[in-house]
Simulated scan of single mutants.
Amino acid sequence: MSHYFRLVQVFSKKQWILIGLILLLQLTIAGYQIGTSESLLNNGKEITLELAPVDPRSMLQGDYVILRYEIAEVNELKNVHSGNKVFILAKEDQHGIYQREKILTSINPRDYQLAQDEVLIAGKYNGYNGIIIGIESYFVKEGTGLDLQRNAKYAKVKVSRTGNSILQSIE
């Protein structure tokens, strides 16, 4: 019990308040991220995207599938620097797959008018061959990555009104 009292005496009241504020800030940030993801899962629009094949093995991480999306593969974008935020305007085709219509570079997604069969997908231009949308890795049960990679054609994705996306499954 005396060790506890020594620890309490080491910190002043101001230091305890600072520690408490730091913990509160960390919990607030974690809660916000969890809430944002849950909101996207509950309220986002489910879409299907076509995949492009990539090698599924990592010596350190085990089996996973690296996903490349057809809509995110682009040639060099003029007047767009590597790391710049972009939005892919995707439209549903006759088979229920969302295809890229165009890439938008300077919009506010909340103000952009979308048709019922359109979505915006936020990403970052990587500077040479595509757009990173943040859902390129999908970890799978050990021993299943290669088979899944060979057979996967589509990804089910939830997309929010502002372009944030969460990968739900691959088929």
Rank of each mutant, 00 (worst) to 15 (best):
K85Q: 14
G134V: 02
G123A: 05
S160G: 15
K124H: 06
N42I: 09
V74K: 04
L77C: 10
Q26T: 11
Q149N: 13
I107N: 05
L89M: 04
R150Q: 13
V159R: 09
T36D: 15
R110A: 11
A115V: 05
A52K: 03
V65N: 02
V80W: 11
R150P: 03
G143V: 07
I17L: 14
Y64K: 12
N75H: 05
R100G: 01
N84F: 06
E38Q: 15
P109S: 05
E76Y: 12
F11I: 04
Y69V: 06
S39V: 01
K158V: 08
V8C: 11
K153M: 07
L77Y: 07
G96D: 00
D147P: 11
A30C: 04
S137A: 13
S106V: 00
R161F: 08
Y128M: 14
E46P: 03
G83P: 08
P53I: 00
E46W: 06
A90T: 03
L146F: 15
G62F: 07
Q33L: 13
V159D: 03
K141S: 10
Q26I: 14
I133W: 00
L77A: 07
Y128F: 11
I132G: 06
E38W: 11
D55N: 12
S82A: 15
S82F: 02
K153L: 04
K91A: 11
A152T: 04
E50G: 12
H3W: 10
E46I: 14
Q15R: 04
L51A: 01
R68S: 11
Q94I: 07
Q26H: 12
T28S: 13
F5V: 10
S165D: 10
L67D: 07
S58Q: 05
Y64Q: 08
E171V: 02
K156A: 11
E46Y: 06
A152C: 05
S137F: 06
P109Y: 09
V159N: 03
Y64P: 04
F11A: 05
Q113L: 14
Q9F: 03
L167K: 02
L104V: 06
H95Y: 13
A115Y: 01
L7M: 05
G44K: 00
E92R: 15
V65L: 09
K85G: 10
L67N: 15
S2R: 13
N75T: 02
T28C: 14
